[in-house]
Simulated scan of single mutants.
Amino acid sequence: MILRPVVEADFAEVVALANLAYRGTGAGASWNVEEGIIEGQRLSDSSLREELAAKPNGVLLVWRDTEDGPLLGTAWLNPEAGGVWYLGLLTVRPDRQNRQLGRTLLAAAEGYASERGGTRIRMTVLHVRVGLIAWYERRGYTKTGDTEPFPYGDERLGKPLRDDLHFIVLEREIV
């Protein structure tokens, strides 16, 4: 497993993978797409650049088997206060799912944060993504009871197809 910070040469593959993993359709789609919830692109080159610039202490990790191999997954980590690290954009190529790659990547991302002083991982998940929430709960994450609003009017994440969306907060100790 080669897990390293993203470089500009990775951007096109990262954008393509995020859009496939979150919004892909058809036989090759991920088990946890946002179909019927949000449509359009999940990520663009410009939104990726904006996110990286806005959070200079964060890191987008890319995962490959070999340095020149295909992109297998991504994980966004951003340090917050008190040893908490935010985790987002955890993606695995849909054609490689059902091989425990998601849990492998999640554990590697948690290890990355822990090695840098992290003690907890925090994430937000759309409340209607019940299967994904259950997957994280099986990995030891718990709902905190906190919620965050969905950014209606900001279509960088895509166009919402529902008017009741919000995020729930999940956390897990990593030490």
Rank of each mutant, 00 (worst) to 15 (best):
I2D: 05
I2A: 02
I2S: 06
R4M: 11
V6F: 12
D10W: 03
F11P: 08
F11Y: 15
A12I: 10
A12D: 14
E13I: 06
E13G: 08
V14S: 00
V14G: 05
A16T: 12
N19K: 10
L20F: 07
A21I: 01
T25D: 09
A27Q: 12
A29R: 15
G36D: 10
G36M: 10
Q41K: 14
D45V: 15
D45S: 14
E50K: 09
E51L: 12
L52M: 11
A54G: 10
K55V: 10
P56T: 05
P56Q: 07
V59S: 05
L61K: 09
W63G: 08
R64M: 01
T66M: 02
T66G: 07
E67H: 09
T74L: 00
A75F: 13
W76T: 01
W76V: 05
W76F: 08
N78M: 09
N78Q: 13
P79F: 00
E80I: 06
G82M: 00
G83W: 01
V84Y: 10
W85H: 05
Y86H: 08
L87D: 02
L87G: 05
R93D: 08
D95L: 03
D95P: 00
Q97T: 02
Q97Y: 00
N98D: 10
Q100S: 06
A107N: 09
E110W: 06
G111C: 11
A113W: 03
G117S: 04
G118W: 07
R120C: 00
T124Y: 09
T124V: 12
V128A: 10
V130E: 11
V130Y: 00
G131L: 07
G131V: 04
G131Q: 09
L132A: 01
I133Y: 00
A134R: 09
A134Y: 04
W135I: 04
E137K: 11
R138G: 07
R139G: 14
T144Y: 00
T144K: 02
G145T: 02
G145K: 04
E148Q: 13
P149I: 02
F150R: 02
G153A: 03
G153K: 02
G153M: 03
E155A: 08
E155M: 05
E155T: 12
R156G: 04
L157E: 13
K159E: 14
K159N: 15
L161C: 13
L161H: 13
L161T: 13
R162P: 15
D164Y: 12
L165E: 10
L165S: 11
F167I: 10
V169H: 08
L170Y: 06
R172E: 14
E173I: 09
E173S: 15
I174F: 07
I174T: 10
